[in-house]
Simulated scan of single mutants.
Amino acid sequence: MAASHSSSLVSDPPAIAEAKQAQRTRCLAVLKDRPAGVDTTLAARLAETLLATQCMHIACVWPLPHEIDLRPLCHQLSTAGRHVLLPDTPPRGQPLTFRLWTPHTPMLRGRFGTQVPDGPTLTPDLVLVPLLGFDRTGNRLGYGGGYYDRTLASLPDVRSIGYALAAQEVDQLPTGPYDQPLSCLVTERETLHFD
Protein backbone atom coordinates (compact mmCIF):
# COMPACT_ATOMS: atom_id res chain seq x y z
CA MET A 1 0.00 0.00 0.00
CA ALA A 2 1.19 3.49 -0.79
CA ALA A 3 2.14 5.92 1.93
CA SER A 4 -0.67 8.03 3.30
CA HIS A 5 -0.87 11.75 2.72
CA SER A 6 -0.40 14.10 5.59
CA SER A 7 -2.42 17.27 5.74
CA SER A 8 0.55 19.22 4.40
CA LEU A 9 1.12 19.65 0.70
CA VAL A 10 3.15 16.82 -0.79
CA SER A 11 4.25 16.14 -4.31
CA ASP A 12 5.88 13.55 -6.51
CA PRO A 13 9.59 13.60 -7.23
CA PRO A 14 10.28 15.89 -10.25
CA ALA A 15 10.87 13.08 -12.79
CA ILE A 16 7.60 11.35 -11.87
CA ALA A 17 5.68 14.65 -11.89
CA GLU A 18 7.02 15.44 -15.38
CA ALA A 19 6.12 11.97 -16.71
CA LYS A 20 2.62 12.26 -15.25
CA GLN A 21 2.08 15.68 -16.82
CA ALA A 22 2.98 14.34 -20.26
CA GLN A 23 0.43 11.52 -19.82
CA ARG A 24 -2.21 13.97 -18.57
CA THR A 25 -2.01 16.01 -21.76
CA ARG A 26 -2.59 12.95 -23.97
CA CYS A 27 -5.31 11.41 -21.78
CA LEU A 28 -7.22 14.68 -21.41
CA ALA A 29 -7.31 15.04 -25.21
CA VAL A 30 -8.75 11.51 -25.49
CA LEU A 31 -11.41 12.33 -22.89
CA LYS A 32 -12.41 15.59 -24.57
CA ASP A 33 -12.63 13.94 -28.02
CA ARG A 34 -14.75 10.97 -26.93
CA PRO A 35 -17.50 9.75 -29.25
CA ALA A 36 -21.12 10.74 -28.68
CA GLY A 37 -23.09 8.23 -26.63
CA VAL A 38 -20.13 6.71 -24.80
CA ASP A 39 -21.09 8.43 -21.52
CA THR A 40 -24.43 6.59 -21.56
CA THR A 41 -22.77 3.23 -22.22
CA LEU A 42 -20.22 3.74 -19.46
CA ALA A 43 -22.86 4.95 -16.97
CA ALA A 44 -24.96 1.83 -17.68
CA ARG A 45 -21.98 -0.44 -17.01
CA LEU A 46 -21.22 1.47 -13.81
CA ALA A 47 -24.85 1.16 -12.66
CA GLU A 48 -24.71 -2.60 -13.17
CA THR A 49 -21.49 -2.82 -11.15
CA LEU A 50 -22.68 -0.55 -8.32
CA LEU A 51 -26.14 -2.05 -7.96
CA ALA A 52 -24.57 -5.51 -7.65
CA THR A 53 -22.81 -4.36 -4.45
CA GLN A 54 -24.33 -4.03 -0.99
CA CYS A 55 -22.88 -0.51 -0.67
CA MET A 56 -25.51 2.02 0.39
CA HIS A 57 -23.43 5.25 0.56
CA ILE A 58 -21.91 5.74 -2.89
CA ALA A 59 -19.70 8.73 -3.62
CA CYS A 60 -20.29 9.81 -7.20
CA VAL A 61 -19.06 12.79 -9.22
CA TRP A 62 -20.97 15.77 -10.63
CA PRO A 63 -19.12 16.38 -13.91
CA LEU A 64 -17.13 19.33 -15.10
CA PRO A 65 -17.94 20.23 -18.74
CA HIS A 66 -15.30 17.92 -20.28
CA GLU A 67 -15.86 14.95 -17.93
CA ILE A 68 -17.99 11.85 -18.33
CA ASP A 69 -21.53 12.76 -17.29
CA LEU A 70 -22.62 10.61 -14.33
CA ARG A 71 -25.71 12.67 -13.48
CA PRO A 72 -28.09 10.03 -14.96
CA LEU A 73 -26.27 7.43 -12.84
CA CYS A 74 -26.77 9.57 -9.72
CA HIS A 75 -30.52 9.65 -10.44
CA GLN A 76 -30.61 5.87 -11.07
CA LEU A 77 -28.80 5.10 -7.81
CA SER A 78 -31.06 7.43 -5.84
CA THR A 79 -34.17 5.82 -7.35
CA ALA A 80 -32.77 2.40 -6.37
CA GLY A 81 -32.59 3.53 -2.74
CA ARG A 82 -28.84 4.15 -2.54
CA HIS A 83 -27.51 7.28 -0.86
CA VAL A 84 -25.63 9.33 -3.44
CA LEU A 85 -22.83 11.45 -2.04
CA LEU A 86 -20.99 14.13 -3.98
CA PRO A 87 -17.57 15.55 -3.16
CA ASP A 88 -17.02 18.87 -1.48
CA THR A 89 -13.51 19.99 -2.39
CA PRO A 90 -11.60 21.53 0.55
CA PRO A 91 -8.46 23.64 0.33
CA ARG A 92 -5.54 21.83 -1.29
CA GLY A 93 -3.79 19.36 0.96
CA GLN A 94 -6.97 18.02 2.60
CA PRO A 95 -9.09 14.96 1.74
CA LEU A 96 -12.50 15.39 0.16
CA THR A 97 -15.66 15.34 2.22
CA PHE A 98 -18.92 14.02 0.78
CA ARG A 99 -22.41 15.50 1.02
CA LEU A 100 -25.72 13.72 0.52
CA TRP A 101 -27.45 14.45 -2.80
CA THR A 102 -31.01 13.73 -3.88
CA PRO A 103 -32.76 14.91 -7.05
CA HIS A 104 -34.36 17.65 -4.90
CA THR A 105 -31.22 18.86 -3.12
CA PRO A 106 -30.14 22.41 -4.06
CA MET A 107 -26.68 22.59 -5.58
CA LEU A 108 -24.14 25.18 -4.46
CA ARG A 109 -21.06 26.46 -6.23
CA GLY A 110 -17.92 24.59 -5.16
CA ARG A 111 -14.21 25.00 -5.81
CA PHE A 112 -12.77 24.70 -9.34
CA GLY A 113 -16.18 25.16 -10.98
CA THR A 114 -17.73 22.15 -9.24
CA GLN A 115 -21.26 21.80 -7.89
CA VAL A 116 -21.83 20.68 -4.29
CA PRO A 117 -25.14 19.52 -2.78
CA ASP A 118 -26.51 21.49 0.15
CA GLY A 119 -26.83 18.29 2.20
CA PRO A 120 -25.31 16.67 5.29
CA THR A 121 -21.78 15.24 5.27
CA LEU A 122 -21.64 11.41 5.24
CA THR A 123 -18.90 8.79 4.89
CA PRO A 124 -19.07 6.64 1.73
CA ASP A 125 -18.89 2.84 1.55
CA LEU A 126 -17.69 3.10 -2.04
CA VAL A 127 -16.02 5.94 -3.95
CA LEU A 128 -16.24 6.44 -7.71
CA VAL A 129 -12.93 7.94 -8.75
CA PRO A 130 -12.57 10.16 -11.83
CA LEU A 131 -9.33 9.89 -13.73
CA LEU A 132 -7.45 10.89 -16.83
CA GLY A 133 -5.55 7.63 -17.37
CA PHE A 134 -5.20 4.12 -15.97
CA ASP A 135 -3.12 0.99 -16.35
CA ARG A 136 -3.94 -2.68 -15.82
CA THR A 137 -2.34 -2.83 -12.37
CA GLY A 138 -4.91 -0.51 -10.76
CA ASN A 139 -2.93 2.72 -11.00
CA ARG A 140 -4.77 5.88 -12.01
CA LEU A 141 -3.68 9.25 -13.26
CA GLY A 142 -5.67 12.10 -11.73
CA TYR A 143 -5.62 15.82 -12.36
CA GLY A 144 -2.64 16.37 -10.07
CA GLY A 145 -4.20 17.87 -6.95
CA GLY A 146 -3.97 14.65 -4.92
CA TYR A 147 -7.53 14.96 -3.59
CA TYR A 148 -8.60 11.40 -4.32
CA ASP A 149 -5.28 9.93 -3.18
CA ARG A 150 -5.62 11.75 0.16
CA THR A 151 -9.26 10.73 0.42
CA LEU A 152 -8.62 7.05 -0.28
CA ALA A 153 -5.68 7.04 2.15
CA SER A 154 -8.00 8.44 4.83
CA LEU A 155 -10.67 5.78 4.08
CA PRO A 156 -8.63 2.54 3.86
CA ASP A 157 -11.64 0.20 4.04
CA VAL A 158 -13.63 1.90 1.29
CA ARG A 159 -13.89 0.34 -2.18
CA SER A 160 -12.61 2.60 -4.94
CA ILE A 161 -13.94 2.19 -8.46
CA GLY A 162 -12.39 4.21 -11.24
CA TYR A 163 -14.22 4.90 -14.48
CA ALA A 164 -12.78 5.84 -17.84
CA LEU A 165 -12.89 5.25 -21.56
CA ALA A 166 -10.95 2.23 -22.76
CA ALA A 167 -8.89 4.67 -24.88
CA GLN A 168 -7.58 6.31 -21.69
CA GLU A 169 -5.55 3.20 -20.89
CA VAL A 170 -1.78 3.66 -20.62
CA ASP A 171 0.70 0.77 -20.79
CA GLN A 172 2.28 1.70 -17.46
CA LEU A 173 1.66 4.81 -15.41
CA PRO A 174 4.42 6.49 -13.42
CA THR A 175 3.53 6.28 -9.74
CA GLY A 176 4.62 8.33 -6.78
CA PRO A 177 4.82 7.47 -3.09
CA TYR A 178 1.32 8.84 -2.31
CA ASP A 179 -0.64 7.29 -5.17
CA GLN A 180 -3.52 5.06 -4.06
CA PRO A 181 -4.43 2.14 -6.35
CA LEU A 182 -8.02 1.38 -7.34
CA SER A 183 -10.06 -1.65 -6.26
CA CYS A 184 -11.77 -1.84 -9.64
CA LEU A 185 -12.06 0.06 -12.91
CA VAL A 186 -15.01 0.20 -15.33
CA THR A 187 -14.79 1.26 -18.97
CA GLU A 188 -17.44 1.18 -21.69
CA ARG A 189 -15.97 -2.20 -22.73
CA GLU A 190 -14.88 -4.08 -19.59
CA THR A 191 -14.54 -4.20 -15.83
CA LEU A 192 -11.11 -4.74 -14.28
CA HIS A 193 -10.70 -5.96 -10.69
CA PHE A 194 -7.45 -5.39 -8.77
CA ASP A 195 -6.18 -7.05 -5.60
Rank of each mutant, 00 (worst) to 15 (best):
P91G: 12
G133L: 05
L108N: 12
N139D: 10
P103A: 07
Y163W: 12
T187Q: 05
Y163D: 02
C55A: 15
G144M: 09
S11N: 03
Q76D: 10
P95C: 00
I58P: 06
S7E: 11
G110P: 14
I68P: 02
P156R: 09
M56A: 11
A29E: 13
V30G: 00
Q54T: 11
T53K: 04
E67C: 00
N139V: 04
C27P: 05
G138R: 07
T97V: 15
P35V: 13
G144F: 06
L86P: 08
P177I: 12
V170W: 07
S78F: 04
L50K: 02
T121C: 11
D39G: 06
T40P: 01
M107F: 11
I58W: 15
V61D: 01
R82E: 08
A29T: 13
T79R: 14
L165H: 02
L152Y: 00
H104C: 08
L182G: 05
D125W: 08
A43F: 02
P130L: 09
G142R: 08
A15Y: 02
V84M: 10
E18G: 03
G119W: 00
G133M: 06
L86W: 03
T191C: 13
Q54I: 01
Q180G: 02
R150S: 02
T121Q: 10
Y143K: 11
D88W: 04
Q168H: 05
D195H: 11
H66Q: 14
S7M: 14
C74K: 05
F112A: 12
R34P: 04
G176Q: 05
R136S: 12
P117G: 07
D12A: 15
D33N: 14
P174N: 02
T137W: 04
D195T: 14
G37S: 08
M107Y: 10
E188I: 09
L185T: 01
L9I: 14
V61E: 00
D39A: 11
M107H: 10
R92V: 03
A80I: 08
L77I: 02
R92A: 11
A44S: 15
G176M: 07
S11C: 08
R109F: 05
F134V: 00
L73Y: 03
A166Y: 02
E18Y: 00
T137C: 09
C55H: 15
S160L: 05
L46I: 06
T53A: 04
N139R: 11
G93R: 10
C27L: 03
R136Q: 13
L155Y: 10
T49E: 12
P35D: 12
G133D: 05
L9F: 05
D149W: 05
L128D: 01
R150A: 13
L155T: 04
P106I: 12
P87D: 01
Y178F: 15
R109V: 13
G119N: 03
I68R: 01
Q76K: 13
T89M: 15
I16T: 15
P91V: 13
Y163P: 04
D171R: 12
P156G: 08
R140P: 08
A3P: 00
Y147R: 03
E169T: 00
T191A: 06
G176H: 10
R109N: 15
A80E: 12
L86F: 06
A43K: 01
L165Q: 07
Y143P: 01
E188M: 08
R150G: 03
